[in-house]
Design a protein around this nucleic acid. Structure first.
Ligand code: NAD
Ligand code: NAD
Lengths: 266, 266
DNA sequence: ACGCCTTTGTGAACCAATGCACAAAGTCGT
DNA sequence: ACGACTTTGTGCATTGGTTCACAAAGGCGT
């Protein structure tokens, strides 16, 4: 509760000295969400074991992650929930407000613009852009769709540092280039394309079909080793009859076999 | 072109012996996509340098990744595009067809159901479910929304192994439990919740606000070190005035400061 | 038929991340 | 005031992943 014997006055024990490990950064938001849930339920103090359980990670890992921010726990007791929320938020840069621009107001862009969890944590939709005149002017939730010609202007005027790309793949690189040229240094890309950016620009991708393919791999592996423990001498047979579903084209084995319906997705 | 002196007959040089490293698995879909684009443009052969450039990775890494599947390159030449597509597809388990069930037909669920890139690679929407009677019966793209009571039945009948959760966070764990009980072992979760599952079930999450928070962290770090190289003695000041945007509530420093608008997102 | 030149596949050094296990710290009950 | 008990913070060993750099492979031009 009261911070006990800490050096008083927001010590920031371990200020800006060392860089947070990337793996830690990617877990902090999860901790933050679990902590927010606890705070809401009136929990005042939490141990590393409890928090780790809630976040689905090893408690040693959690403690090490938090230790990179400073020494904010109380031995024998745990962590003060509110204080930890503040420290994690600060580390992530969420004590300030981040205006975001979304480019592409199709199915996905509209879903994003409608999404409540967007605004709840320091992010604000500064603009929603599309190139289709038929859509421009309509209203999604609270934001109006503007024409993508205004991209540069809006970014500069609202000091936007984060851009979200929800256009078809074909337009993504061009949009990305414009975003970067206008000063955006962080991009979240939903288009199924590898974006090329200059050094110093940070791109993250969210890619549904990649996630599904990874899941498919594991599903296949699991069902393969359930149906038959990988004994030494089965070579080709192991990949067929492996999964539950039906095999469409019986895996011909020559160079010419384009086994994937190679349509470039919209 | 013709496979030259390879041991004939789909050798599968390195059959099912070793496990693919997880990091490799997560990159194979990217290679596959780039390869598909090349095949479509009529490219017959590709070197590791070219493919690596297209996928945005180091070429040594790419070669090592592919070497885990077997030895399918030709020294001095490169890789046969079609043949490599086939091999990567096979490794990922995409030579078979995977029926998928989507639970939750809200903004996101509808966007997913409409999404073309879904079907293009071996995935098929076997069912789209919702609990809201007002939505059940409507049609999204080609699939009709069914009531979530039918979940177990549909999963068993269609031999569904992959489930996608697009419900509000509150319903996600319950939906997850039902999916698993019905036999689903791979889950893609869009709800902002940590799912608890039994050993042997594979969960991947796609979480917009986590991605944004990670981007915010890097954006903050960049602008911090642009505005002032982290000199030794600034402690508290480094986090303020760091970013471009405005700081809303001036970071009070006591335990009671709940610095984050801790609303649990819908 | 041969040697040059390109490109693969991988050994080995490096770096990042994980998880165990425990001493030091600090609380709380008596 | 003190000792037992809880829980943190971290050193260390281990595992997993990346990158360099090069020898072996093999096509292709002459
Ligand atoms: N819908 C999904 O569930 C889903 C899932 C994963 C990935 N994606 C990807 O996300 C992207 C968007 O998907 P979607 O379903 O919303 O597609 P969509 O076709 O519904 O929407 C795309 C929108 O982008 C606009 N647009 C095109 N070029 C533009 C430009 N240069 N500037 C601004 N706007 C432009 C179009 O007018 C359209 O409104 C696609 O790349 C898709 O592959 C979608
Ligand atoms: N929209 C986005 O861009 C976005 C982005 C990231 C994450 N998310 C998350 O994805 C999820 C869905 O988002 P959304 O915008 O589509 O929400 P939404 O409210 O539009 O849709 C949710 C749907 O799930 C249905 N549902 C509720 N309980 C159910 C149950 N037990 N079984 C079956 N269906 C049930 C509801 O009837 C509703 O149709 C949410 O958890 C949200 O936080 C959404």
């Amino acid at each position: 509760m009261s911070r006990g014997s800490l050096p008083q006055f927001d010590p920031g024990d371990r200020p800006a000295g060392e860089r947070l490990p990337e793996a830690t950064v990617s877990r902090l938001p999860v901790y933050l969400r679990v902590l927010a849930g606890m705070a809401e339920r009136g929990v005042v103090t939490v141990s590393s074991d409890q928090l780790a359980a809630g976040a689905g990670v090893n408690s040693a890992k959690l403690r090490k992650d938090l230790s990179h921010l400073g020494s904010y726990g109380i031995r024998g007791v745990g962590y003060d929930v509110d204080y930890l929320i503040y420290q994690v938020s600060r580390a992530l840069g969420l004590t300030q407000d981040w205006p975001v621009v979304i480019v592409g107001a199709g199915n996905l862009g509209r879903a994003l613009a409608n999404y409540g969890g967007f605004v709840t944590r320091g992010f604000r939709i500064a603009a929603l852009l599309d190139s289709d005149p038929a859509i421009v002017g309509s209203r999604i939730g609270r934001v109006a769709v503007r024409h993508s010609d205004e991209l540069e202007d809006l970014i500069v005027r609202h000091k936007v540092a984060i851009g979200v790309i929800a256009t078809p793949g074909g337009a993504a690189q061009a949009v990305c280039d414009r975003l970067v040229a206008a000063g955006v240094t962080s991009i979240l890309n939903f288009a199924p394309v590898v974006l090329n950016v200059a050094e110093g620009v940070d791109v993250r991708k969210v890619d549904l079909s990649i996630e599904l393919q990874i899941l498919a791999f594991h599903a296949q592996r699991r069902s393969a080793e359930r149906n038959g423990p990988p004994s030494e001498d089965e070579l080709r047979t192991v990949s067929e009859g492996a999964g539950l579903p039906s095999v469409p084209g019986g895996a011909s084995r020559l160079s010419t076999a384009a086994a994937v319906p190679s349509a470039a997705e919209a």
